[in-house]
Design a protein around this nucleic acid. Structure first.
Lengths: 347, 347
DNA sequence: TTGATTTATTGGAACGTTCCATTTATACGC
DNA sequence: GCGTATAAATGGAACGTTCCAATAAATCAA
């Protein structure tokens, strides 16, 4: 039990019969030390059960090897994938990423950011919680700490952003629906406090306009970005006088909800009502029918964000270019009426 | 950009015209300071853009406020839920949990653990990666650092474990299948290098024996714990001479795979072949048909683990009781009665 | 007034590293 | 033998906090 006073390099030095400086050198893998001395020291390290105190070291070095990843919702596989993409990159760069979850709570986010800064991280990658104000990052900016946003952008902030091309994704999806012959379209889910929402909705609107769908034949229903939200959106839409025949959903979760609600009403998703999702999470391909969705490559964006961060740290700057990731529409079986267009991977 | 030499309490002291000790006291919210002095100091803190250096503080205090959560697979919603449950508890205790993902890689796990220790965490909650040897935790134990395992247990380790009652869960599920009239049962997925596997398989076996299913009428197919693994298991099983009519799956992912594979063969999950999952992830209720599964309350187990950890830290011990969480079978639509005729049209 | 008591504030020594400037030991050329 | 270069190891001052012991200022009892 009695956690003994932990060993320091001085204990190692005594054990090995050298000076603390020598131990320090060995710890850093310096070539200045005679191999046999290094060996002796390493043995002593093992013997005394030494664990390196990075806090003490950083006091002198002022250059830590940890970066913080602040994620708005870890239980969403979409963001989890992104986080894992980042991890891959950091790991091979010898950097340890610590992940913190904010659960879409700006207050929690503030705490987490504070904590990470106090811990002396070398940089921060943040997927901001809903409702974040740009003031939340003022301290970080004035501290000159490298920071990048992923997936979400804040209204008027100069912090670099790595995000998918939401506008184009929505455009493609809308065009697909129009191409299938649909003339009354809906946009389901999401709420206007998110910039992403405006980007996607903007793509939808512009596509409609460009393809000759009059605005009065489009319907926009805000709602939770979850299955439940999707169910609600569909109910609302079908209760209207001249209901839409197809919907672009803010994300896949909403799309799943819409499909469930359709089934519940005895309607067949795809055949009776076309549905397109956004994000293309893994489950999309496993649904019945398989969901047509806009793929954004979250893991790839995560990797990209990590690379940008590494470069910022390396070049000691807090500035970087935005990066808008390519998207592509993955056509499956959820947009009738033409079944022939479905991909072969239907199961 | 030139990140200015960061402010320290000395800068604050100068700014506010007090001593560094006074600043330190204010920082710790000591009541010994005259309110107006405290106010002056707080203003200075704001002015110089100070950020607390926890590393330096820990050098003296030797009692950090961060604990590490090491998770084997963050992209699995099951584990993500658990992590979030822990977070909730720690947050309200003023402790900051840092999450690290090991991606089921013992080498990565070792690195992550090392890093966390160097960072000076107050404790560790670990969901061990597959293939972890108990030697990986020797250093942590000798350091006297509180540690608990969640979900998975290591063969011969004295580290406390918080896990669901796998044995009983499997028992319940098996009994349910037998109750539906099935007489040839399979256990799908998982591999024997996981203790959990033996626990669940053990429950299955004992239930079969207790309920009069002879061992020769049971089939065990190891496999990846993923959809792909489930697909493979089903293929293997149906290729046998006298195939089973029902399966208990190692986890829900495997079950989903089994259901997909059934569909691909023109068989209806539930009606033609009964499937039970394990873990009861959120998607289980949204599948078609909805999956009958053993619910383990991952978030609840996470919370429990966090509480145990808090108590260990508080009482300065590295010992704690195991905690086996209750499970219950959630019956949905994936287990019809045995109607073997349906199997005939397979292939 | 004086000394004792309470209330606020402070200097200085740690904590465990790194790294610069030295020292010591070893080898070399002549 | 000398001086010089090279290699290996070292002492000590920092880094930014905390906290103890000490001081200074204010209050009080007599």
């Amino acid at each position: 039990m009695a956690s003994r006073p932990k060993a320091t390099i001085l204990d190692i030095a005594r054990e090995a019969g050298v000076s603390k400086s020598t131990v320090s050198l060995v710890l850093q893998g310096s070539g200045l030390i005679r191999p046999e001395t290094a060996l002796k020291v390493r043995k002593a390290i093992e013997d005394v059960g030494y664990v390196y105190n990075r806090g003490a070291a950083n006091l002198r070095k002022a250059h830590s090897n940890v970066i913080g990843m602040v994620i708005n919702d870890l239980t969403n596989p979409f963001f989890a994938e992104m986080a894992v993409g980042m991890e891959r990159v950091f790991q091979s760069a010898g950097i340890v990423p610590f992940i913190a979850n904010t659960a879409e709570n700006p207050v929690r986010q503030e705490e987490v950011l504070k904590s990470l800064m106090e811990q002396g991280v070398a940089g921060l990658i943040v997927s901001p919680a809903r409702g974040t104000t740009s003031g939340a990052f003022r301290r970080i900016e004035t501290a000159g700490l490298p920071i990048v946003f992923t997936m979400r952008r804040l209204p008027e902030s100069r912090i670099p952003v790595i995000a998918p091309d939401n506008h184009r994704g929505a455009w493609l999806a809308t065009a697909h629906l129009v191409g299938k012959g649909h003339r009354r379209l809906a946009f389901f889910g999401g709420s206007s406090d998110l910039v992403v929402y405006h980007e996607r909705l903007g793509g939808f609107r512009e596509a409609c306009e460009a393809l000759g769908i009059p605005k009065r034949d489009t319907l926009v229903v805000e709602g939770e970005t979850s299955r439940k939200g999707g169910i609600a959106c569909l109910e609302t839409a079908l209760a209207m006088a001249d209901p839409p025949t197809a919907a672009l959903c803010f994300n896949d979760a909403v799309a799943f909800g819409v499909m469930l609600a359709l089934r519940k009403r005895g309607l067949e998703p795809g055949a009776d009502f076309a549905v397109v999702g956004f994000d293309d999470v893994i489950e999309a391909q496993h649904y019945m029918p398989a969901l047509t969705s806009v793929a954004v490559d979250s893991a790839g964006l995560g990797e990209r964000a990590a690379h940008v961060m590494l470069k910022m740290i390396q070049s000691r700057t807090t500035r970087a270019e935005d990066h808008i990731g390519a998207v592509n529409l993955v056509v499956r079986d959820s947009c009738g009426p033409d079944r022939r267009e479905g991909m072969g991977d239907a199961a």
